[in-house]
Amino acid sequence: MNIVWLSLIILAVLTAAVRGTMPEISKAAFTSATTAVELSLGLIGAMSLFLGLMRVAQDAGLVQALARLLRPLFRFLFPSVPQDHPALGAIALNLGANMLGLGDAATPMGLKAMQELQTLNPSQDTATDAMCTFLALNSSSVQLVPAVVIGLRAAAGSQNPSEIILAAILATSCSTLVAVASARLFSRMPYFKKSESQPGGGAQ
């Protein structure tokens, strides 16, 4: 992450120096910072709503029931998480919301899942294998119906806006499989070994 972050900024400044876009990038730095804060604060509403709803579902035992249903899958994906851990319930809800294309609901559940996974983490500033797998799952998109782009297609006058659904499901299955498989593979590589990660090293 250190290298990626620094590279983005260095490339930006170098390109700006050559192209004379310096005023644009300094303006972009400030507007992006403002956008970041607005986005974070904007999340609070949906976050509170869905975390509230999730607590009700938890108290009613619904979340645990869902997690039990998915137990075989979770045992394979997150072998380090105990079977009845609340993290698995939150992960189940996050994946469910993602599949249905409910981004507003998926993010709060995902963050809740991360908090629960953090309770199992021996070194609080370093990601565990379960966290990395969960992130890879989430960032590879598991949604079945890409509602946003279908809406965009409809607005642009497509004859059949939803014709891409099958193709998207096929492509997203590939991306999810590869993301999870490579997470599993990387977790075994000495370079990414958790115990050996020193400040700055092994934590790209």
């Binding site: 991360m114 993301a179 990660s197 934590a203």
Partner: peptide, 20 residues
């Protein structure tokens, strides 16, 4: 959760994106 060391999360995710 204040995790700063992401280990292999980014490369695995980007490989997923590339595959997508």
């Amino acid at each position: 959760i204040s995790v700063r060391k992401a280990r292999y999360a980014l490369p695995a995710s980007l490989l997923g994106d590339l595959t997508g």
